[in-house]
């Protein structure tokens, strides 16, 4: 024991402060959430064990949750892949530019994701009256004859939130892809050209993508997390609850039960299901990424 401490004591001392906080605020909360999901708990009385009741009620007795699942999957299935490929394609195009232009375009595409509340400007652009910029434009061009209430009409509001989400989705993965592309050895391309790579698409598939597979995996994790975790920004754009629950996602359902109704057992059951879904999706994507090149 003493020899072990002499050898590793400093290492554990270095790692400890972070790890204590990491366990207290991330690992243990996940375990608590899983445990609480089998109870009924309102934060005033001690939790009462209810077995699978929360899950049964969620999946078979909660119509609003079914809407939330449908919206979340629709939202994730559209914004996740589109944003991922947008990050990749744009990073790829940008990488071909000369350095000054590259810096300019990187900033242009990355800026929305770090601009905080600026996305709320979309509520002005998509405003439901004729003063809304998009309504004004469409009215002038004669495409529509009366203003569309973009953010309150259940047929349009989820799509508007998807557009806004895509607009601000070129974040960490985008930078990771740009950096990954810059790190690829130029001689690989020269060798490829000699070996018969004819056009940019072959080069992308056979050389570029396999060389940046680690970044692709990192980017995938970031994209999956953000596309399944949509909720806060949707509420900011269309309010809560949205018309006919058309913008209701698993996260907004979770916030409803956790922050408003204080049914913590039920809320953590929602969180646990969401977490399992994200893990499963990540496994699937990792499997797909192995097939590149």
């Amino acid at each position: 024991m003493r020899a072990f401490l002499r050898k590793w004591g400093v290492s554990y001392l270095f790692a400890l402060p972070y790890l204590v906080l990491f366990f207290v605020f991330t690992v243990i909360p996940v375990l608590i959430a899983i445990a609480l999901s089998f109870t009924s708990y309102n934060m005033l009385q001690p939790p009462v064990w209810v077995g699978w009741d929360n899950y049964v009620k969620l999946l078979f007795g909660d119509d609003v949750f079914l809407i939330a699942i449908k919206n979340t999957f629709l939202f994730a299935a559209i914004t996740g892949p589109i944003s991922y490929f947008l990050c990749l394609i744009l990073a790829w195009f940008i990488n071909e530019l000369k350095p000054a232009m590259r810096t300019f375009f990187t900033l242009l595409f990355y800026a929305p994701s770090i601009s905080g509340n600026v996305f709320m400007i979309w509520t002005v652009l998509f405003s439901g009256d004729a003063y809304g910029w998009i309504n004004g434009l469409l009215l002038r061009w004669g495409i529509i004859y009366e203003p569309v209430r973009w953010l309150t009409n259940p047929d349009t509001l989820l799509w508007v939130t998807m557009i806004v989400t895509l607009w601000m989705s070129l974040g960490t993965s985008f930078l990771a892809f740009i950096a990954g592309l810059q790190g690829i050895d130029e001689s690989l391309y020269e060798a490829g050209a000699i070996d018969g790579v004819r056009n940019r698409w072959q080069e992308l598939w056979y050389i570029t993508l396999p060389a940046m597979r680690p970044q692709l995996l990192f980017g995938a994790i970031m994209s999956i997390t953000s596309s399944f975790a949509a909720g806060k920004n949707i509420v900011a754009l269309v309010g809560f609850p949205s018309t006919d629950y058309a913008g209701h996602t698993v996260i907004t359902h979770l916030m409803d039960y956790g922050n408003i109704r204080f049914e913590m057992g039920y809320a953590t059951a929602i969180a646990t299901l969401l977490f399992l879904t994200m893990m499963a999706t990540q496994q699937l994507v990792q499997h797909l990424l192995r097939k590149i090149g």
């Binding site: 590793w8 400093v10 290492s11 554990y12 270095f14 790692a15 790890l19 990491f22 605020f25 991330t26 690992v27 243990i28 909360p29 996940v30 608590i32 959430a33 609480l36 934060m43 994790i221 970031m222 999956i224 997390t225 399944f228 975790a229 909720g231 806060k232 996260i251 979770l254 916030m255 956790g258 922050n259 913590m264 809320a267 953590t268 969180a271 646990t272 969401l274 977490f275 994200m278 893990m279 990540q282």
Partner: peptide, 30 residues
């Protein structure tokens, strides 16, 4: 240093990149 257990811990950290903050919001508040 690659201290004993560091691999497991790092894998946990990579996995936690996937936690939406909302998942842990309730226990964190507690």
């Amino acid at each position: 240093h690659r201290f004993p257990g560091s691999r497991v811990i790092f894998n946990l950290i990579v996995m936690s990149l996937m936690f939406a903050p909302e998942v842990t919001a309730v226990p964190n508040y507690l």
